Simulated scan of single mutants.
Amino acid sequence: MDLDAYVAEHSAEWRRLDQLARRRRVTAAEADELVALYQRAATHLSVVRSRSPDPALVARLSGLVLAARNAITGAPAFSWSTVGRFFTATFPLAVYRAWPWWSAVATSFSILTFAIMAYVVAHPEVANLFMDDAAITRMVQSDFVGYYSEFQSQNSTLRVWTNNAVLTAECLAGGVLLMPVLVVLFYNAFNVGLSGGVMIAYGRGDVFFGMIIPHGLLELTAVFVGAGVGLRIGWAWIAPGPLRTRGRALVEAAREGMLVALGLVVVLLVSGLLEGYLTPSSLPMLLKDLIGVVVWAAFLAYVVVLGRAAELAGVSTDLPEELTEASVPVA
């Protein structure tokens, strides 16, 4: 198919469809014209996809068809019930289904981190390869604790929320290539293990764990979930299974990954609030740790209980049928 000739032949129709789709009000005749042009554009999109799948043209026609469909049927209205369903069924289900992946990430990360801690405690001189004596002294005496009260609570919350969101996004997005996720996890495990090993070696282990637990359990779990789901996305195109193509398996896993990403925004906000307000507070250390453990356990219970219930109820994490590619009409 001569793509340039095809575009030249139908571009006038597409421009007219775009004009009609942008109007807030149309006459009865224009409405009939809009429907007819929409059906023709959907056919054109199907033809281009099957015969000459130019990415730029496919994207242009896809956007045009979606805009026209919204103009005809009306854009979906915001509904609190949809938000409620997301947080009570869809999100916990997506996380629950990926639990073998993120629990394996959590286990591997913990083993590696504690192994590094133990090695640094047994060989304190190793820390000098990465920081000088003055830096070690500052960290043990003041910097580690002072880090959590360096900024005002609201500023600290926003900074931590942003940083952790970026880290989790890197794990999710890099999952399709597998290796980037492993590199990010190793880097963070090494930093936590080195810092913990130094604090323990200098008799400040209680301070280290006391300051980490209030926010760190939930924060790290969110990162583990993001990394696990990211690796699951990557594995989908390596081993799609006997009944799915690689492309379909990747798309389905990526869709669930996007759901998890949306939900983790809220989870990371909660961990940011804990780090910004609870960790540097004047509450007794044991009380702060207890609150952190309770919040973390509540999140795990939320995922397991609601996620399992949603799975038993047959809830789907896929897009609604009217939003999928297969539902585009062909005239």
Rank of each mutant, 00 (worst) to 15 (best):
L158M: 11
V192A: 10
A254V: 05
G174A: 01
D206L: 13
L178M: 15
V207D: 13
Y277Q: 07
F190D: 05
V229Y: 11
F208K: 03
V183K: 12
A165L: 15
V207K: 07
V267W: 02
V207H: 14
L177A: 14
N164T: 07
G216F: 12
V225F: 05
P180S: 06
V229C: 13
A173E: 04
G272H: 09
M199I: 00
I200K: 13
L290H: 06
N164K: 13
G234R: 15
M285T: 13
S195W: 12
A169C: 08
A222E: 00
G263A: 03
G203T: 00
G196A: 04
G226E: 05
G175R: 11
H215G: 10
G193L: 07
L274K: 02
G210N: 12
F186S: 02
L182N: 08
G263Q: 08
C171T: 00
G241T: 01
F208S: 02
V176H: 06
Y277F: 12
G263W: 09
G226L: 12
V160Y: 15
V181Y: 04
E275A: 09
A189S: 11
M285C: 10
V225Y: 14
D289N: 11
G197F: 15
L243C: 04
P280S: 07
M258K: 02
I200F: 15
P180D: 01
L185F: 10
G175K: 08
N191E: 12
G205A: 12
S195I: 10
G174S: 05
V265T: 10
G241K: 03
E219S: 03
S271E: 04
L185C: 06
A201M: 07
L243H: 14
E219A: 07
E275Q: 13
A236T: 00
T245I: 00
L287N: 07
V223W: 15
T245P: 13
P284R: 08
L287P: 02
A173H: 10
V183N: 02
G203P: 03
R246V: 01
G263N: 11
S282Y: 14
V223D: 08
A249F: 09
V183S: 06
V266L: 14
R244L: 15
L268I: 07
Y202L: 05
I212C: 03
P214N: 02
M199F: 07
E219N: 08
M199R: 03
A173F: 14
I213R: 04
